[in-house]
């Protein structure tokens, strides 16, 4: 997850499902920062984007198997 090339964007778009899915586990839960190894700032942006994406049914709240 922590590849050096990846630049954390300032704003995480809830429409960018591809990006968001990288930070979810199989059940669609948000992975903890312990595992994602991203900055606190980015994790906050991410969490918010995930919640927005869930609201508009772009990603599930709960899933048997995401991906």
């Amino acid at each position: 997850m922590s590849n050096s090339k990846f630049r954390e964007p300032a704003y995480v778009d809830y429409k960018d499902v591809e990006l968001i899915k990288r930070y979810l586990n199989e059940q669609g839960k948000i992975l903890p920062r312990r595992i994602t190894n991203v900055s606190a700032k980015f994790q906050r942006q991410l969490t918010r984007a995930v919640k927005r994406a869930r609201h508009v049914a772009l990603i599930p709240f709960v899933a048997d198997s995401l991906k």
Binding site: A10, Y11, D13, R52, H55
Partner: peptide, 15 residues
């Protein structure tokens, strides 16, 4: 079925 409105702040506008 569903709607979501967001006010765009400077970051979102830039994005």
């Amino acid at each position: 079925l569903r709607y979501m409105s967001l006010r765009m702040d400077a970051k979102m506008i830039r994005h």
